[in-house]
Write a protein that binds this DNA or RNA. Structure first.
Length: 447
RNA sequence: GUGGCUAUAGCUCAGUUGGUUAGAGCGCCGGAUUGUGAUUCCGGAGGUCGCCGGUUCAAAUCCGGUUAGCCACCCCA
């Protein structure tokens, strides 16, 4: 029988079993809730776009690892590799009816044909939020608050309140000011790319790379790294920066923006240990021009940034002459999920039903179904076992699936007018509850 | 895309220099227990050794290719 097709999935593409998918949906719901709480509105765009939309003008396609092909109508099309470029097209197309400022969130799957690694897939979900049409630093500050509240909410959902994360902040203007002072504007991409490796390969190697490959002098390389390595209290570092960048208008503006951002975040109640100035964060896509954010998990730094973003001056420049500045960030949902799994923060329950009702007495199916419906109307999630098997089997089933409470009733209970409510999380804990008290009792058990 | 490591039961892994019917623990199914899920005991199912080809009297074991996972570079979520 070798004519069977081997069931398999493509490299970098994955199936999600119930317990993983439950965690995934919980992340999506958390992101959606936090974004909405700040007034971001939902949008969606097609998975497939004209290739020219995604590649941009002379865009380096190989960098984006596009899935690109010719469709049945002969069109040159490609699958979106992020949600920002589709937003740019969207904003250019609808800016007149949307008005500004425009705040949207977009939770969707994207595709990149690059090589896989832990937490790096070819199909993965991003949860983006952006505010476009304003250059106000208030939007930058709000974006940082959103990232913080999002990570905090995920911690509450998955880790009893504390996930352990840090948001690193920088501003491209500061780096641009430095490059300007050093006369390195021409080599900025190479310099920043090298600088970004500082934590990983160290000062000596970064200097070597900058001098040998990027075309900077040793003196220039040293002063860039001197600035990136500034450490200490955020306020002190900002003061040092101000001095080092004296004479550079953009540099001073960057420092001022960072100063206001840190100050406002502290006033707004963000714990200072969760946000930090990190001048070595240079990366971020080419289009970032101002504030930059990266979020790392304290216990899982190697998995990379799980939520990154920043400010861009001209989002939709390829599509419209209207200038649309904006700021936003993206939660890498699948990367974060991979980290949560490694940290053993993902629940093992594979059922969304919290309450289990065994078919104890086959003749009373209608009554079990009635009870289940009444409880659903009260807001509970309830599953009735589909077969009248021995009770032992039915309880084994719900133990495996992860229901939290079982409601058992046979002839004795129906005669006495009570339900036996079994707390499946505490072995042997079981009590008789009258119908009138059932909902309240369940609520206290499921709290 | 380049380079490296790995691939044996549902899961985690043994398998000695190539040598008969490839093993363990956990899990799963059935029973002991015809009104109760993490214990105990008994029994059972489940593997083309990732896939294809080569060397050999003989391949899970050696060689080549391929697919997938992981790691580094690159890039990023």
């Amino acid at each position: 029988m070798s004519d069977l097709i081997q069931p398999r999935t493509l490299k970098g593409f994955r199936d999600y079993l119930p317990n993983t998918m439950m965690a995934r949906e919980q992340l999506v719901e958390t992101a959606r809730r936090v974004y909405r709480s700040y007034g971001f509105s939902p949008i969606d765009t097609p998975a497939l776009e004209y290739a020219e939309i995604l590649t941009g003008k002379g865009g380096d396609e190989s960098d984006k690892q596009l899935y690109r092909f010719t469709d049945h109508g002969g069109r040159d099309v490609a699958m979106r590799f992020d949600l920002t470029v589709p937003l740019a097209r969207f904003a250019a197309q609808y800016s007149q009816q949307l008005g500004t400022p425009f705040k949207r969130y977009h939770i969707a799957t994207v595709w990149r044909g690059e090589n896989t690694q832990k937490g790096r897939y070819r199909e993965f979900m991003q949860c983006d939020f952006d505010t476009i049409g304003t250059e106000s630093n208030a939007a930058d500050i709000e974006a940082l608050l959103v990232i913080h509240d999002l990570m905090e909410a995920i911690g509450v959902a998955f880790s009893n309140g504390d996930l352990g994360f840090g948001i690193r902040v920088n501003n491209r203007l500061v780096l641009n000011g430095l490059l300007e002072k050093q006369g390195l504007q021409e080599q900025s991409v190479g310099v920043l790319r090298s600088l970004d490796k500082l934590p990983k390969i160290g000062r000596e190697k970064v200097i070597a790379e900058m001098t040998e490959h990027v075309g900077a002098t040793a003196e220039q390389a040293n002063s860039v790294i001197d600035l990136a390595e500034l450490t200490g209290e955020t306020g002190d570092v900002l003061n040092s920066l101000e001095t080092m960048l004296s004479g550079s208008e953009v540099g001073q503006l960057g420092v001022a923006r960072l100063r206001e951002l840190f100050s406002a975040c502290l006033t707004a109640g963000i714990p200072s240990e969760r946000i930090g100035l990190d001048l070595s964060i240079a990366r971020g896509l080419d289009y970032y021009t101002g504030t930059i954010y990266e979020t790392f998990l304290t216990d899982m730094p190697n998995i990379g940034s799980v939520c990154s973003g920043g400010r861009y001056d001209n989002l939709a420049g390829l599509f419209t002459n209207e200038k649309l500045p904006g700021i936003g960030a993206s939660l890498g949902l699948d990367r974060l999920l991979a980290a949560l799994e490694l940290m053993e923060k993902v629940q093992t329950a594979s059922t969304p039903a919290e309450i289990f009702i065994p078919q104890f007495d086959a003749d009373r199916l209608g009554e079990y179904l009635k009870l289940a419906r009444e409880l659903r109307a009260e807001g509970f999630t309830v599953e009735v076992y589909p077969e009248a098997k021995p009770l032992k089997k039915q309880l084994k089933y719900c133990d495996k699936k992860g229901h939290r409470v079982a409601i058992i009733a046979g002839g004795n209970e129906f005669k006495a007018g009570v339900w036996q409510v079994k707390n499946l999380q505490v072995r042997g804990e079981q009590s008789d509850v009258s119908g009138a008290n059932l909902a309240e009792h369940l609520r206290s058990l499921l709290r």
